[in-house]
Design a protein around this nucleic acid. Structure first.
Lengths: 334, 334
DNA sequence: CTGAAAGCGCTTACAG
DNA sequence: CTGAAAGCGCTTACAG
């Protein structure tokens, strides 16, 4: 069932039917009614490819994320989808699996008009950001969220990572910690640097000499990370507080403490960035800095639609920062 | 940059260039080389809408799931995406948020040719399956996974839910439970019925009269569920084993036991269907029946591509069953 | 208010 | 081996 057949049934021209379906002011009310009724009766649906080809609009956005089996990204996609649904847009998903090369190839793939805009969270392995710059130059709307590149001037949605890094550290200090280890995953994304800076500045400000040089660089290899943490906590002069910059490192700490028979929070206190639903169910429950993942997704989607619908000189902020929340639980009890 | 411009640059006809790009045997090797080089130089990309319109093929599949912030579905999507990537297909995501009406409207939306196939996990609220039947009649490839409707004859990928229901119950019995409560979420999907049947038959076979009528019907409202469970566990003659048919009910049990000061597994043993990464980190660690979510996703995707590429009389199995695994942990220790 | 026509950018059957 | 032409199914500027 296409326009041609529908027009024939109605004894109207294709153009009249098309206009009627799009509620054009050129068409009389009675004709519109007749067309709509017939279209419904025959279950006519516009061919999206013909329409997109003609209008040079896809009604589709792409979401490019490092992984999906990570509650943060799942929630962010959830937020993006809610806005897309409101706008009657379609959502394409691409996973980079933390592979910078894959990220570049997906970015290139998406330059053929398949989508009206791209929302991306960068892979931790990404060191070169020229593929993002390229999108910008091609004027393909893009919004980066969470895992962003600081120095690329495209709209970015992030959380207050520096502040969170600071307040998480302060929280450990208030809980009595004197020697705090920061478990870091180093990469070129500002998010991890900011958390680290927040920690470093807080340590300085509070004059905790024992915490100096206690930045532990972790990798993508959890076996290695576990060993690293184990060696750290085996020492006689082990830290009395751990700040895990990402969720999985906090969980590894729980495993290690179990194995070393260290009591959380008596022997060691732990805080970590996390969106885990079960943080409250761990024993002890895990104190977290929790990012509003769903809201980040929504916010990013609202921005991409502003860019897509951009007319004249509407102003798009380059930085949108939403606040994380510190949720105090058992793992940092005094 | 389109075919017309590219052809002009090469002093060739549009058709020759198109054929060369698609590696047609009609075109000479030298011409192909020249075309490919020029296309690369000018960064030519085929317009997907023109191509799809002409070929009546979208190179896109849709994934329709009840929710995404559920590790099971996130992992399944991960599996689907891995196959789609191999096939160079695009993946559209639609969330129904457990809303049957939404599920129907998405299904209708997808009948306009936007996708070559649909992979769907039904909403728990779905009671009428005619929208699925409709896809079948329209010969739009569809595969149902996990949350399937038993009596619709479309390809379905599920886990061995009856067997899992049985072996989970057996496991509790072996661990010494005499009175086992099954926490059920009732709906029209075979998955929950099968788990329940496995439980019921196992109870009968093992002759545990105290477990009769211990099927607790839970709802989508977790506050109510928690109260329900609390009232159950407050009783003097409370059960000594709980079989949670879905993840979140198992977690609610942990919360309730905490609040009632019941010791797991001494006072009560708990087993639950779950894909939670942190099941092992709970105190005590949670014994789970874990579905191979990623594999279910891959399997379903492989099936949809079989349907899409179907030629002649290739046989597509109506039922594909993959095995779940029972992972014994602390919550069911003798 | 309605319709004829051009054209979006491809692919492919057909002619040469 | 190459090219002219039709056509996929729409939308829209233009004519009447």
């Amino acid at each position: 069932m296409n326009l041609k057949q529908l027009a024939k049934e109605l004894n109207l021209s294709i153009s009249a039917v098309s206009k009627a379906l799009r509620d054009s002011h050129e068409i009389s009310a009675s004709t519109k009614l007749a067309v709509l009724a017939k279209a419904k009766e025959l279950n006519y649906q516009v061919n999206p490819f013909a329409s997109s080809l003609r209008k040079q609009k896809s009604k589709t956005i792409a979401v490019v994320v490092p992984e999906i089996d990570n509650i943060f990204f799942a929630l962010a996609i959830n937020g993006i989808e809610s806005v897309a649904q409101e706008k009657e847009y379609h959502v394409l998903i691409y996973l980079t699996h933390e592979d910078a090369q894959k990220e570049v190839s997906v970015t290139q793939l998406l330059q053929n008009g398949r989508v009206d805009g791209i929302m991306m969270s960068l892979s931790s392995q990404t060191t070169d950001f020229s593929h993002i710059q390229q999108l910008k130059e091609k004027e393909l709307p893009i919004v980066l969220f969470d895992r962003v590149a600081e120095h690329i001037n495209v709209p970015k949605v992030t959380t207050d990572d520096y502040d969170s890094g600071e307040s998480a550290t302060e929280h450990l200090i208030e809980a009595g910690c004197k020697k705090i280890a920061f478990l870091s995953i180093s990469n070129n994304l500002s998010i991890s640097n900011k958390r680290k800076s927040g920690y470093i500045d807080s340590i300085k400000k509070n004059n905790l000499p024992n915490s100096k040089n206690l930045i532990i660089e972790c990798s993508q290899d959890d076996e290695k990370n576990k060993l690293l943490i184990k060696n750290l906590l085996k020492k006689k002069n082990r830290p009395d507080g751990i700040f895990a910059s990402v969720e999985k490192l906090a969980l590894l700490c729980y495993e290690v403490c179990d194995e070393l028979n260290l009591n959380i929070p008596a022997d060691i206190k732990i805080i970590g960035f996390s969106n885990l639903h079960t943080a409250a169910l761990l024993k002890p429950s895990l104190t977290t800095i929790t990012q509003p993942a769903y809201e980040i997704g929504r916010e990013s989607a609202l921005l991409i639609f502003k860019l897509i619908e951009k007319r004249g000189n509407s102003i798009i902020p380059e930085k949108t920062v939403v606040a994380s929340s510190l949720i105090k639980r058992g793992s940092t009890k005094k």
